[in-house]
């Protein structure tokens, strides 16, 4: 197999898939770090974001990229709303209670999507798009877009977390909640901000998943486990770790068919994760130990 073929059919799809995983994994790792529980409704929130974008695309006749900001804002609002109505009361309870609540939320969001948009497979634009040829590299425009958008969103988030006042407050909450509260950080605002960011990232991952494949009501749920694997792989609480974890999982899944039967492709994310937990329990980049 020549080098170009390896890049074109294994590495590039892996990077694109990895970027979608990364967008989800960053959200998961934020919830883990600041709120300290596993948010199981993450995938279905991404589905919701993708379908909101679809509504905008079909309703206004604009391109998915124009619809993306609207979907991000709408999904962020939904995420904040869910937190206010359902999760907020459980904050003082054992975290496992919130994990179970998020499972119920996942069912509810999926039901809403299925009732509102139906269960048919949908796409943003009909037809197929053949890849362009860049010096032998075969890449579709939307794939370049996916990777750039991922880098831009995560880069922006990183800037926000390191430079702005509220970003620093979020990091403080993640590092030591008691100390952060003592030093006068408004817990409620930090939580709300976290959900705005997480909801937005969910929508972005859903839209790009839909852009690269199709929209289905189960699409988010099916992405949930690899996204979790990516978040933990990168090191909990580490934004750049989640990106790295997402890319590793994505590329490893695509490369796996070279060595193992393709029906075991889905197991690849977990095999890497188990190996990582054994040799380096804090993840690729040093994350928290929960």
């Amino acid at each position: 197999m020549d080098f170009l073929e390896l890049i074109n059919f294994y590495v590039i799809p892996g990077i694109v898939l990895g970027s979608i995983y990364a967008l989800g994994a960053v959200g998961i790792t934020l919830v883990f770090a600041i709120l300290r529980y596993a948010h199981l409704a993450h995938g279905d929130l991404a589905t919701l974001g993708a379908f909101i974008a679809l509504a905008v695309v079909t309703g206004l006749g604009v391109s998915p990229l124009v619809a993306l900001p609207i979907a991000i804002i709408a999904t962020a609002a939904v995420a904040v709303g869910i937190d206010k109505v359902f999760y907020e009361h459980l904050r003082e309870r054992p975290k496992i209670v919130t994990v179970m609540a998020s499972l119920g939320i996942a069912l509810m969001i999926r039901a809403v999507v299925q009732v509102v948009w139906g269960v048919d497979t949908e796409t943003y634009s009909r037809g197929i798009v053949r890849p362009e040829n860049y010096f032998g590299l075969r890449i579709r425009d939307r794939e370049i877009l996916t990777v750039i958008a991922m880098i831009a969103l995560v880069g922006g988030l990183q800037l926000f977390l390191t430079r702005s006042k509220w970003g620093k407050a979020m990091r403080a909450m993640s590092d030591n909640p008691n100390l952060a509260l003592l030093s006068g950080i408004d817990n409620k605002k930090v939580v709300m901000l976290t959900w705005v960011i997480v909801g937005g990232l969910c929508a972005a991952s859903g839209v790009f998943l839909g852009l690269n494949t199709e929209l289905k009501s189960m699409m988010g749920w099916q992405m949930l486990l690899p996204m979790f694997a990516a978040a933990i792989l990168g090191g909990v609480g580490r934004i750049e770790g989640a990106v790295l974890g997402g890319l590793v999982v994505g590329i490893a899944e695509e490369l796996s068919v070279l060595v193992i039967p393709s029906e075991y492709k889905a197991a690849m994310a977990f095999a890497i994760l188990l190996f990582m937990l054994l040799v380096r329990p804090t993840g690729l980049l040093k994350g928290k130990v929960l």
Binding site: G104, M108, V115
Partner: peptide
């Protein structure tokens, strides 16, 4: 709607 109800009951 049934799945929605199940989720809601859980909440």
């Amino acid at each position: 709607i049934r799945l929605f109800l199940i989720g809601l009951m859980l909440q």
